[in-house]
Write a protein that binds this DNA or RNA. Structure first.
Length: 427
RNA sequence: GGAGAGGUGUCCGAGUGGUCGAAGGAGGCGGUCUUGAAAACCGUUGAGCCGAGAGGCUCCGGGGGUUCGAAUCCCCCCUUCUCCGCCA
């Protein structure tokens, strides 16, 4: 949520931002509700004041007649207050549900555009490999080497689930350990987070746990959901706290499973492991001082690059355009790895994403710090993918496939894997 | 899952239905003293909302209720601890 006090002072800017993001929020409605709410609060507060004064008068001794008069007055006020409070509550609910839909401000350098093809490529690393043999996509490789079983998973769990098998299991664990070791080196506190979180935490982070378009699995009658990312559990970690300035920045790394409904997602660009209902991911999450968040965002991007460079996977970085930013994000960088099996002759596929959400999530989560003047301020929250296992596996299998059908293992992973290639023979 | 005891400010901890946003300590900050520090002493120290301001309102795990008035009484939920059961 943005600072609603700025609704009037930065109105044009907010409106322009909504337009740039191709979102639909009626600012006038929000402003109307804000005005209504303010008046109602003033009314209710005045009534409460009368009630408090009335109650205070009754503390001392007095004649039964006098007391009866005051009690009658108090009863009258009580009814009025209850009525007005009811109205206020309704307005408040409407106001917040509208206001929550207003997206975060966007970084002035974020490219303006509607969808992912408007994202701005800002760098590339590595070279796109040329193969002198007929290449396969990861689904085929996974099947030929008995690494991934979609068919059985479809029977047991449903479409878009999978079993990892044999060396793919070792590959997943190796990637997790590889990424965690790098994060540890960078001063992150390592965690394995719960895979379930309360709806209020999801909402604080900016996810919508309900509704048609929700990507979230909710657990019936519990008020909880399966997390779509450890961003939720890591962001909830310090919710409601006022954190001492000396402790900042707080750098958390979290390994979790991620669950996504992905309703309607199908076709060529979602095939295989690329878009699935469950995967594992190591996530980075930072609680930062506002003045440091831009620099830390760059650091997160640098760590993502370090991880992929270590794996020898060619990639490019894009600066995400306004229309493709999530509502909480102020700026977002995506890393796209080259996937030879994607599209006709290979294409870039998103493998990581890092966002600076400034104070947008912190305001809902009430995650704050005290500045040098002792004033309480909202922190800036940032997140970034260290490694999303399923997509990393897509890139690794497709990039490292050999003419003989085997797959070589990136040097950095070999110690974790205990092998330098995957073949049917060494499983 | 069953039984019992708790959940109060940064932390520990007291709290009779009205004088409680809340005693007392610790910690933090400022000061006196000191060459400096410690100790001692004095002062100060929660957050949010509405309002141009004056000021007012709300918050004692969360939500309901009783009452003219609730941190205090009642109900539900969450959570922590102890014991029992079950269990990887």
């Amino acid at each position: 949520m943005i600072d609603l006090k700025q609704l009037t002072t930065r109105k044009d800017e907010i409106q322009q931002n909504i337009t740039n993001r191709f979102m639909h929020v009626d600012l006038e409605t929000v402003l109307d509700l804000q005005e209504k709410r303010s008046l109602l609060i003033q009314e209710v507060d005045a009534l409460r004041k009368s009630r408090n004064e009335n109650a205070k008068k009754m503390k001392g001794k007095m004649s039964p007649e006098e007391r009866q008069i005051l009690i009658a007055e108090g009863k009258d006020l009580k009814v009025k207050i209850a009525q007005q409070e009811e109205i206020l509550k309704e307005v408040e609910v409407q106001y917040l549900s509208e206001a929550k839909r207003i997206p975060n401000y966007a970084h002035p350098d974020a490219p303006i555009g509607k969808e992912d093809k408007d994202n701005l490529q800002i760098s590339t690393w590595g070279t796109i490999p040329q193969f002198d043999f007929e290449t396969k996509d990861h689904v085929q490789i996974g099947q030929d080497l008995d690494l991934i079983d979609f068919d059985t998973a479809a029977r047991v769990s449903g479409a878009k689930f999978y079993y990892l098998k044999n060396q793919a299991v070792l590959l997943e664990l190796a990637l997790e350990r590889y990424a965690l070791d790098i994060l540890r080196k960078h001063g992150f506190t390592l965690t394995i987070t719960p895979d379930i979180a309360k709806e209020e935490v999801l909402e604080g982070i900016g996810f919508n746990p309900r509704g048609e378009e929700s990507n979230i699995y909710s657990l019936e009658d519990t008020g909880t959901c399966l997390v779509g990312t450890a961003e939720i559990t890591l962001g909830g970690y310090h919710a409601g706290e006022i954190i001492a300035k000396e402790r900042l920045p707080i750098k958390l790394a979290g390994l979790s499973h991620c669950f996504r409904k992905e309703a309607g997602a199908a076709g060529q660009y979602s095939k295989g492991l690329y878009r699935v209902h469950q995967f594992s991911k190591v996530e980075m999450f930072i609680y930062a001082l506002p003045e440091e968040s831009d620099a830390i965002h760059q650091e997160l991007l640098a760590i993502e690059e370090e991880i992929f460079q270590g794996l020898d996977l060619p990639y490019r970085i894009v600066d995400t355009c306004t229309g493709d930013l999530g509502a909480p994000a102020y700026r977002k960088f995506d890393m796209e790895a080259w996937m030879p099996g994607r599209g006709e002759n290979g294409e870039w596929g998103e493998v990581t994403s890092t966002s600076n959400c400034t104070d947008y999530q912190a305001r809902r989560l009430q995650t704050r710090y005290k500045d040098e003047d002792g004033k309480v301020q909202y922190l800036h929250l940032l997140n970034g993918t260290a490694i999303a296992i399923s997509r990393a596996i897509v890139a690794i299998l497709e990039i490292n496939q050999q003419a003989d059908g085997t797959v070589s293992i990136p040097t950095a992973l070999q110690p974790y894997m205990g092998m330098d290639h995957i073949s049917k023979e060494n499983r």
